[in-house]
Write a protein that binds this DNA or RNA. Structure first.
Length: 527
RNA sequence: CGGGGUGUAGCGUAGCCCGGUUAGCGCGCCUGCUUUGGGAGCAGGAGGUCGCAAGUUCGAAUCUUGCCACCCCGACCA
């Protein structure tokens, strides 16, 4: 499963910009290895979907499992998720949130309480109906014990609003109990028809924040605040520029009054929603009867938000930065930031070089850099180079007998594939600086790409031409109706990704209907 | 759930039409020697109920039927 093959080849715009020479006083050997086309993984241009899949599998991020639509996240992929979790969790705590955990199972009846919400999720819920197995009478294995039918069936959470709001009713009596600023790290299940590793799986990992507030204003502020946290994370950790905006009615979260999102652009010109923050109004408070006594002594329904990002971000990370040599990771999210590969011809050299390598490792680690020394004798240096390149390790340090003699190492950066010889003296500082450069360069490169793939369309013909050509974000006028949006989707598969939060008002005519419009919105084909 | 396709070693595959020695090859794996600054070479070796079940036949990876799994396209979606 999950191995998608594109029906047509997508041209990947060449966006790699030449990187400025390092501002370090060192010789640049700069031999960029050619990609060996005989190797058995795809390029972006050949087959983008396959390229994506090959990276996930070959970089050891995840693999398909025995359960259809579910993946096994392997240690290296999980390590990336853990780094994302660590950064986000800190940001949540820094903005006053605390973690908690709510059950995986939700009583079926909870879903009937909020009409839009059930409408949105009913079609993709896994349901637990029994609680016991027994041996089959004919000895063919185990079967469900029909006598163990649950009185009330349990839904495996597709999201936790219902169980959380049922709980919040118990927690809230007075304005003094507010706000509640809770986040949970959890798995959820949405029974998807078609799945792709990380981008859409039946079960996925995420965090969901659920907050309760006394006033509409405060809840709205929370919604915006968390959107900003996500945008900050995307740009500063993932090195992916994102558009902040509000969703159209069609794309809004089931049960929300307003859904805000960050939208990122992938290298194949498709958009990917990288995070959402919902203003839920009083919908859930009313559905679950969560009221509080205000200072004035009146009984009010509380105001709510929810917000989340998922393991889908790992997919975004892959598609935003990686190249035909494999994964490219931004240093801030790389489980291994620098790998050291020793070169040697015999045992004496091995001992000499590895001893120096260990010293270097320690020196760099003192700066808080995650370093791995690969001193395995079971693989050759060339093999290791390719291995770590494919795994997206930002920096590689190579040290051999000649280096030990001269007090140098070779250092290669993954983003530009450039190599240079640098002195061991101050190496830790060099590494630190290069990691910072790489982080910045990736963001700059992705921003450049987005800029080059964001176009305006004023006519319907233009609109369709852009989609047929290279895709990307299309800024176009829209008459604000769901009907027009639906028609555009049916004809082109492009949807409104968001209505940007910026202030760029501009009178115009809807690209489809010709009706008046006050601003451009962002269209794209999306994941 | 509709339409199409594919199941042969850990992975990728040849053989299938037109049934007939011991099912072949590449990668990977194991052993030994030589190697090690961009995926090492040579020699030897291990590994297969040919998706499952039934049928046709002297004989089935190959033909027939049924089932299962997976993949692709559509509807749905973070």
């Amino acid at each position: 499963m999950c191995i998608l093959v594109c029906t047509k080849l997508i041209t990947i715009p060449e966006f790699f910009v030449k990187f400025a020479p390092f501002n370090l006083p060192i010789k640049n050997t700069n031999t960029i290895p050619k990609r060996d086309m005989a190797k058995d993984f795809s390029t972006r241009e050949e087959n983008y979907s396959k390229w994506y899949n090959d990276i996930v599998l070959r970089a050891g991020l995840a693999e398909n499992s025995a359960v259809r639509g579910c993946m096994v996240i392997k240690p290296y992929g999980y390590a990336i998720w853990e780094k994302m979790q660590a950064a986000l969790d800190k940001m949540f705590k820094d903005t006053g949130h605390v973690n908690a955990y709510f059950p995986l199972f939700i009583p079926k009846s909870f879903f009937s309480k909020e009409a839009d919400h059930v409408e949105g999720f009913a079609k993709e819920c896994a349901v637990v109906t029994h609680y016991r197995l027994k041996n089959a009478p004919d000895g063919s294995g185990v079967v469900v014990d029909e006598d163990a039918k649950l009185e009330e069936e349990l839904v495996i959470r597709p999201t936790s609003e219902t169980i959380i709001w049922d709980t919040y009713r118990q927690w809230v009596q007075s304005y003094r109990d507010l706000p509640i600023l809770v986040n949970q790290w959890a798995n959820v299940v949405r029974w998807e028809m078609r799945t792709r590793m990380f981008l859409r799986t039946a079960e996925f990992l995420w965090q969901e924040g659920h907050t309760a507030h006394a006033t509409e204003q405060e809840a709205l502020e929370e919604t915006y605040k968390m959107l900003d946290v996500y945008a900050d994370f995307a740009e500063n950790f993932m090195a992916i520029p994102v558009l902040k905006g509000v969703k159209s009615e069609n794309e809004r979260f089931a049960g929300a009054l307003e859904t805000f999102c960050i939208e990122a652009l992938m290298q194949d010109g498709k958009a990917l929603q990288a995070g959402t923050s919902h203003f839920l109004g009083q919908n859930f408070a009313k559905a679950f009867d969560v009221k509080f006594a205000s200072k004035e002594g009146t009984l009010e329904y509380v105001w709510a938000t929810s917000w989340g990002v998922s393991t889908r971000l790992v997919g975004a990370l892959i598609m935003a930065h990686s190249d035909d040599h494999g994964l490219v990771l931004p240093p801030k999210l790389a489980p291994i930031q620098t790998v050291i590969v020793p070169i040697y011809k015999n045992n004496d050299q091995y001992d000499l070089v590895c001893q120096k390598a260990r010293e270097i490792k320690e020196m760099i680690e003192k700066r808080g850099v995650l370093v791995k020394l690969d001193d395995r004798d079971t693989h050759k240096p060339g093999w290791k180079f390719n291995e770590y390149e494919f795994k997206g390790v930002p920096l590689r340090i190579v040290i051999g007998p000649r280096d030990v003699e001269k007090g140098t190492v070779e250092i290669a950066r993954r983003d530009t594939l450039e190599k240079q010889i640098v002195p061991i003296e101050n190496l830790a500082q060099t590494v630190e600086q290069l990691l910072g450069d790489i982080q910045q360069n990736l963001f700059r490169r992705a921003s450049e790409f987005r800029k080059n793939n964001t176009q305006t369309a004023d006519t319907w013909a233009e609109f369709k031409d852009i989609l047929d050509d290279k895709g990307g974000f299309i800024m176009a006028h829209w008459d604000g109706t769901a009907e027009t949006e639906q028609k555009i989707k049916e004809e082109t598969k492009a949807t409104i990704r968001c209505i940007p939060l910026d202030d760029n008002k501009e009178e115009g005519r809807c690209v489809y209907s010709g009706n008046p419009s006050v601003r451009r919105v962002v269209f794209a084909r999306a994941y």
